[in-house]
Design a protein around this nucleic acid. Sequence first.
DNA 1: CAGGCGTTAGAGAGCGCTCTCTTGACACAA
DNA 2: TTGTGTCAAGAGAGCGCTCTCTAACGCCTG
Lengths: 335, 335
Amino acid sequence: MRTAQRPTLEAVAARAGVSRATVSRVVNGSTTVAEPIREAVTRAVAELGYVPNLAARSLVTQRTDSIALVMPEAATRVFSDDQVFPGIIRGVSQELEAADKQLVLMLAGSPAGHHRVERYTTGRHVDGVLFASLHGADPLPGTLARLGIPVVVSGRPLGDAPVPYVDVDHVGGVTAAVRHMIDSGRRRIATIAGPQDMVAGIERLRGYRATVADAGLPELIAVGDFTRESGSAAMRRLLIEHPELDGVFAASDLMAHAALRTLREAGRRVPEDVAVVGFDDIETAAYTEPPLTTVRQPIVELGRRMTRQLLRLAAGETIEQAVMLPTELIRRASA
Amino acid sequence: MRTAQRPTLEAVAARAGVSRATVSRVVNGSTTVAEPIREAVTRAVAELGYVPNLAARSLVTQRTDSIALVMPEAATRVFSDDQVFPGIIRGVSQELEAADKQLVLMLAGSPAGHHRVERYTTGRHVDGVLFASLHGADPLPGTLARLGIPVVVSGRPLGDAPVPYVDVDHVGGVTAAVRHMIDSGRRRIATIAGPQDMVAGIERLRGYRATVADAGLPELIAVGDFTRESGSAAMRRLLIEHPELDGVFAASDLMAHAALRTLREAGRRVPEDVAVVGFDDIETAAYTEPPLTTVRQPIVELGRRMTRQLLRLAAGETIEQAVMLPTELIRRASA
DNA sequence: CAGGCGTTAGAGAGCGCTCTCTTGACACAA
DNA sequence: TTGTGTCAAGAGAGCGCTCTCTAACGCCTG
């Protein structure tokens, strides 16, 4: 069974009574083939159930028609409860489907895993590489770019390598969130920040600081890592250090969700005593108690845009170094 | 840049002063190479930064060292809020990493997408195919199996093709859940069932019916599709049709979550008036109000086992037609 | 010391495809 | 009729690798 011979170009050519080259032309859509011959070839392809051997094609064209999407394995854990991880994949997948290219997904967990990613991508086994949710200043994207391998990352890269990226407007979203609380009379607005080795964490904290500073309000900061657990811990710390707080901006919905519960356990009412705003607009946000006001980011679109940029790059076009996607404040009951 | 010549076997051979065949032996770990020569080759490989061209290798070995994971695109939407989708990917990824194989992810949304999957997988561009979360009786797994292409699916396939599968013990989990409610005195236990074109939906309903029948209790059934929206609607219907109910088993945590809210809105207290049990044990389950009692399924392990089975199959071993993974009742406050 | 054997390295074919170059056919002008 | 130009189709090289077959070499045996 395993040796079931698949028909080759040769076989199709023989059946259609033409040369290999002509079959290749038809299969690849060349225009310089007379109609009757094209038809004969098409028929032969159908009759034989011919499918081109991609390995053979890649060998000569130097293209693989596949691109890699690299994510830290932690992303599947940290984000396991929201749609960031599946959302990006969905967006990438949609665009690649349209371009008839394959998606090779690489979750880099261990250092060994990272090395494997490096070997694979630098080995030019893919036509381009997408990086999502980078932690810290990974040198790999820069290395690939220098090798001339098309790369696009999500979020402004922390290193100094000039790698093209697509990001959402963190600062704009956070500003809208914090202003919303200020406008409704809050004056002691704290933040539960995200991890400071990720752009999303850094930018969202930056937005918070700028906005409260602008309004002449104090900075009340506790740092989490985007997870619910860290959100509970941070909220508890904030309540101890700043019991007077009347608003909380959490850098992720997961942390906001945990904060909601912690506040309730501490006897604070939301939104009467404390307003809470999150970031992400995960599906759960509409089902928390009370429903969470939050900043929506276009996550599927992020995946799509990254992919489109990468494909353009791979096609030899020059692309914008940075693309920024808008965020939007979704008002529910928590603030 | 794009034409930057990568070193070939030939180049390594020249540098090491040996033949191509010998370099190939060293690279592929053959034992029949004398130590000094092996060392010389290894050094040449390092110096030149040689990376084998996978396309060329595939062309002759007829292997691709990559496997496809096929999911309906809906899976990323329906499950966007729980860990099924990322969990399976993580499990698959872990095992493939250990085996040094690549993961090609295919989300089949449209009929065109499904056709693309069919073309790609039947074209033997991968060494094996994993199917997750099948809807209905997709003929593709059976077709591939008949072509001699290694296939493993998640969940007992609904068609009659004898395709090897890995599944969790739905019935066992549901039985434990419903018995738990019976044991605590509930006598009017309803279910919010999952979609009846998916094994998970069918099996969980089967488990419910068997257990209530066994206890001489009535069947109170409303069907949803695993999403929160459908869960709310189903819960409302149940309250109208069976206002006397004192327990609800929801076939997914998402539906259970929505039921919790709907019950509260209807003035029913959980668990005092109505006990609620879900299925999946998503992370949110621990954060609902009240925290949700639910059935945990080992989702990462599911991905891992599927992959291990597939790799064994691809290696020519014969494998069990069915593998069943245990489920476990997690008791929290809702029942 | 011839003959046989086991072991290691090289030679060379060929995997299935694309793409350049060449040939062939035909139309039209001189 | 011959020459020129245009366009479609074929011939053939070669992409980088693996793997079989063969050659070379050293060692043991009779």
